[in-house]
Design a protein around this nucleic acid. Structure first.
Length: 721
DNA sequence: TTAGGGTTAG
């Protein structure tokens, strides 16, 4: 028998060994130290060693068990028994002891295919894909050919490492060795190609399958779902059903995730009922898919109740809920959940901290960001590339490009995402020179740019008004074989439009090789509003109302454009349109953090406990501003108010209240940081510049679009936003 | 011993 290779004669000690029946009963119980002490309970000479060691290994739960079993194996001379050692490698790698498994593998003189399968499987299971592939190559170099069990494991490794070329080579071997009819191998190929993003290759393997099982269907459905084609995934799912096949729980995970991607909460809900009908609602991984679905569709409370109902949540479930909160703007809830995790002594993984960092970035509070930064600094994730790029993004979005740069400088292995995050960070703050210089250093470091790098560069040029640099950068994209996407075109339109080159912007749109989307028309409308170009503004708005009819922002922009040229009838028309669609203007809202507590203000907000003092101080400041020469521009949108009313409602804008409260509650000379949900208005921008001078304060405002650093009466945006 | 899924950064 091949698996009994090198089986030595039993040593004398084995003349007194437990009976097989006794071992059968033992397998039902967890391993105890006594079970390992085989010297004490040995009688029977018909003992089956393989059975005995398999039983012990099956019940092992830790490295200590493995150590003891391994020394027994060696002591009894079974270290060359292929069957026992294969089992050992299998169990050790399942327990995460892949290095130990490898050590035992290396001690085996001439491993045959079962042992190779076990070690390759071990590496694949532990996500050590390149090691798995390396072992596969070594196996072949030693003259051992793969069998139908080797191939699915090595294909999994190819998928995990996104090693398309290796996968294709394996595919060739499958043909040459005649495994092309094996269902397991074929499904493995579909999955491997899908994970490499080669959906066409995956599809052609699937199309060639004679016998399609639920696993085959699930493989191709998830292939489309993972590659950004959820609609095709769902179409294939329908086809599978029409062939009379019932989905199992893994199929449903992929289907629900496709519904989440297309944000079809209705169909998602019917899958949820299907899950309940099939009695699968307590399956943790299906819960994760459902929580993602509800969170992505904006039903964050349903997601939370599913989360709360779950007795023992695993890390991924916590991650799903934290990122679900963050994506729905519930940043505080996300951070609180992270803190709860720590309080319960649950160990966050790198995904958990990335999701929480994202929540901090969205919240915009530098204080909260610093806390997170300190936590990471003391954690094992200090050198994680994902975490570092998230931190760079967070600090930049929380107003401190300096802290972002500090993390950037401390990041040892800088991948493209780390470089791009920093470039995008500079872009956000209008630091175009720094962004372009960093781009040069990046190229010198041998890192090639990607599409996001260019978004950062173009945004930087936009905010700094560097039209020609931006134009040159956009045109250089083709040198790097990067196809511009909607956002890049929108950046260029914005760049040209803001600089007043409206005709050039419009020409540019006409020549675009792809259909202009919301962002492109939005940029043109915004430029038309700045330069009061009614015809172009109306034209852009027409497109926007078709493409994105429920976005309040477009209506407000058009209305402001009409108001700026005193076309009150136009303003009224837009109002009617909004009413018909059931839309209301977004309420401006600003936040400031004082001593770790967030204070939120809306326009004319009287709800703050210190409201009286705030308004008194506001009035005093207003008088000083007027004395310093500030005149409100009352010509925008508020045409149906009297001059005084207009002036009052402008002065009561939320950011002004937040700043007044900040001035009252912080020591002289300290920096104020305010976050606003909409874009800063012209009046407030002018007022804040003046406040920074007369109060001698640096004020950092994050609006919906970018950062403004106000200092000594000037703003970093150079009045260009 | 073997295949399919779910959470994360710009």
């Amino acid at each position: 028998m091949s698996r009994n290779l090198a089986l030595p004669k039993p040593l004398s000690i084995f003349s007194r060994i437990t009976s097989s029946t006794k071992i059968q009963t033992l397998t039902l119980q967890p391993l105890k130290d006594d079970d390992l002490n085989i010297h004490n309970n040995i009688f029977n000479t018909t003992f089956n060693h393989e059975h005995f060691y398999t039983s012990l290994l099956d019940r092992s739960t830790c490295r200590r068990h493995l150590n003891q079993i391994h020394s027994q194996i060696t002591l009894t001379g079974f270290q060359f028994n292929g069957f026992i050692i294969t089992k050992f490698i299998h169990v050790a790698s399942n327990l995460g002891e892949i290095l130990y498994a490898r050590q035992v593998f290396d001690e085996f003189p001439e491993p045959y295919v079962f042992l190779w399968n076990a070690i390759i499987r071990g590496y694949s299971k532990q996500n050590k894909f390149s090691e798995g592939i390396a072992m596969y190559n070594r196996m072949q170099n030693t003259g051992v050919g793969p069998d139908c069990f080797t191939l699915p494991h090595v294909l999994k490794a190819c998928g995990g490492a996104a090693a398309f070329e290796v996968g294709r080579a394996v595919h060739g071997q499958i043909f040459r060795r005649g495994f092309e009819g094996d269902g397991f191998v074929q499904n493995g190929l579909v999955a491997a190609y899908a994970k490499c993003g080669r959906i066409d290759n995956a599809r052609s393997v699937f199309d060639g399958l004679g016998d399609r099982t639920v696993v085959s269907w699930t493989s191709i459905i998830s292939a489309y779902a993972q590659n950004g084609e959820p609609i095709e995934a769902l179409r294939i799912f329908k086809k599978m059903r029409s062939c009379g096949l019932q989905p199992d729980w893994i199929t449903l995970v992929s289907v629900i995730s496709a519904y989440a991607d297309v944000e079809d909460v209705g169909q998602g809900k019917s899958s949820h009922s299907c899950v309940i009908k099939m009695g699968l609602e307590s399956e943790p991984d299906l819960r994760i898919a459902l929580i993602t679905l509800y969170a992505k569709c904006g039903n964050v409370m349903i997601a939370k109740s599913l989360f709360d109902e779950t007795e023992t949540c695993n890390v991924i479930m916590w991650n799903t809920m934290i990122s679900g909160f963050a994506k729905n703007g519930c940043c505080n809830e996300a951070i609180i959940l992270f803190e709860q995790m720590l309080l319960r002594n649950l160990k966050p993984d790198s995904v958990t901290v990335c999701s929480t960092i994202l929540a901090c970035a969205q919240l915009g509070s530098l204080e909260e960001a610093r806390k997170m930064g300190d936590y990471i600094d003391k954690s094992e994730y200090k050198h994680d590339v994902f975490v570092n790029s998230a931190l760079i993004d967070m600090y930049a979005k929380c107003g401190s490009v300096e802290l972002a740069r500090k993390v950037f400088d401390q990041t040892k292995t800088k991948d493209i995402v780390v470089w791009s995050s920093m470039i995008v960070g500079y872009g956000l703050h209008g630091k175009a020179r720094e962004a372009i210089n960093l781009f040069d250093s990046m190229k010198q470091a041998g890192v090639g740019p990607n599409d996001v790098t260019f978004i950062g560069l173009l945004t930087a040029c936009n905010h700094a008004g560097l039209v020609e640099d931006g134009w040159r950068i956009f045109n250089s994209m083709k040198d790097y074989n990067i196809e511009p996407r909607h956002q890049h075109y929108a950046c260029v339109v914005d760049l040209l439009g803001r600089a007043g080159c409206l005709d050039r912007a419009y020409d540019f749109i006409k020549k675009m090789p792809i259909d202009p989307g919301v962002s492109v028309w939005g940029a043109l409308l915004s430029a038309s509003r700045i330069y009061r170009h009614v015809a172009l503004g109306e034209y852009s708005a027409q497109h926007l109302f078709l493409l994105d009819p429920y976005n309040t922002g477009h209506y407000v922009q058009l209305s402001n454009l009409y108001a700026s040229v005193r076309m009150w009838s136009g303003v009224a028309r837009v109002r009617v349109l909004m009413k018909e669609k059931g839309l209301a203007k977004d309420m401006g809202c600003s936040m400031i953090e004082i001593n770790g507590k967030l204070h939120v203000f809306r326009m004319g907000d009287m709800s703050h406990p210190r409201s009286d003092e705030i308004f008194k101080e506001h009035k005093r400041l207003d008088t000083r501003l007027k004395e310093a020469g500030l005149v409100a521009d009352t010509e925008s949108a508020l045409h149906d108010l009297s001059y005084e009313d207009k002036e009052e409602s402008i002065c009561n804008h939320s950011e002004r209240l937040a700043i007044v409260y900040g001035l009252m509650s912080t020591p002289a000379g300290s920096i104020l940081r305010v976050t606003k949900n909409l874009r800063a208005c012209v009046n407030c921008h002018a007022a804040i510049k003046l406040i920074s001078r007369i109060e001698n304060r640096e004020i950092v405002v994050r609006d919906a679009n970018r950062f403004h650093h106000f200092k000594n009466g000037e703003c970093s945006c150079g009045d260009y936003w």
